[in-house]
């Protein structure tokens, strides 16, 4: 594993974070730093808790151990009002866009501004149109969320996320399920917004090439641990087999292609002997533990 130290000028710091869901440890004593004004990517296969990490940073989930500081403030020790004040400066782009379905595009972008400020409607209009112009959707202001494509919905959500001029934005899988044109537009948009608005960006993604193209620093997570970190170039030349398999998309390697099972021939030649009741509440013990062993 590469072992590089990021600079000390971090906007977000995650220290010795441990988080579990039931018996499964999602994060096991991990520490991450997100530098101001940079794009930092969290990468890893599905199910490694990347979205969970964003929810922990945003104060929506509480860790079992460790701390998260944003702009010098411990997110999980803030009072509700203080947390909400901090969140006004933290934009988040959800994978689905999370647009309010009973409002049109304009009202969705105006929503946080109307809720948190007392600006006159004429000023809100100008502000919203500027944000929509930045994402290229000023002409779509009257459309409803169900009339938007996936890529457009994410761009509207991005305009909403920057409506209150936040200091940082967290992107949850921004490239998933996008066609090449939408993906290219989003990649450019994230990069240009980061530069022009001086934002700090955290991108959670498993789209290797798109993310590596714009990220300044990358953390690769697996099984609750940081298995690789560094600049895109350093990650590319990482000595870790796991990181190489992930970055190159190899079907087999440290992460096995096959789900754990007994020997193939043995399985084919011998039928299941144990009787399983039709409405059994419990799966056989071998199945119950299989998921945990997946990457062992």
């Amino acid at each position: 594993m590469d072992n590089l130290n990021p600079t000390q000028d971090s906007l977000v710091s995650v220290h010795n974070l441990t988080f579990s869901r039931g018996e499964r440890k999602i994060f096991d004593d991990i520490s991450l730093e997100f530098e101001r004004g940079k794009i930092t990517a969290i990468m890893g296969p599905s199910g490694t808790g990347k979205t969970t990490l964003l929810k922990i940073i945003g104060g929506q989930l509480f860790p079992a151990q460790g701390s998260v500081t944003v702009n010098g403030r411990d997110v999980h020790h803030l009072k509700r009002d203080e947390l909400y004040t901090l969140r006004k400066r933290m934009g988040m782009l959800f994978q689905s866009g999370a647009l309010l379905t009973d409002m049109n595009v304009f009202d969705n972008v105006a929503y946080p501004v109307r809720e948190h400020t007392h600006l006159p409607e004429s000023m809100i209009r100008s502000l919203v149109l500027m944000k929509l112009e930045a994402v290229g959707l000023r002409g779509a202001r009257n459309l409803m969320p169900n009339e938007l494509s996936g890529g457009m919905a994410r761009r509207v959500a991005l305009a909403r996320a920057i409506a209150l001029d936040p200091m940082m934005i967290m992107y949850d899988e921004p490239f998933t399920g996008q066609d090449p044109i939408s993906m290219g537009a989003l990649v450019l948009l994230i990069k240009s917004l980061n530069t022009t608005l001086g934002l700090t960006s955290i991108i959670v993604s498993h789209d290797v090439y798109e993310t590596a193209a714009i990220a300044d620093y990358i953390y690769v997570l697996s099984e609750g641990k940081v298995v690789g970190q560094g600049t895109p170039e350093q990650i590319k030349h990482s000595s870790s087999e796991w990181v190489q398999q992930f970055m190159n998309g190899a079907a087999d390697g440290p992460v096995h292609f096959h789900y754990p099972a007994k020997e193939y021939m043995d399985d084919l030649l011998h039928s299941e002997k144990s009787f399983q009741p039709l409405f059994s509440r419990q799966r056989p013990p071998s199945d119950r533990n299989a998921k945990r062993k997946r990457y062992s």
Binding site: Q60, Y84, S96, Y111, P112
Partner: peptide
Amino acid sequence: TEQLSGMEMMAID
């Protein structure tokens, strides 16, 4: 559809 989470992250209860 994460609308409730989205509101929370916009500091709207």
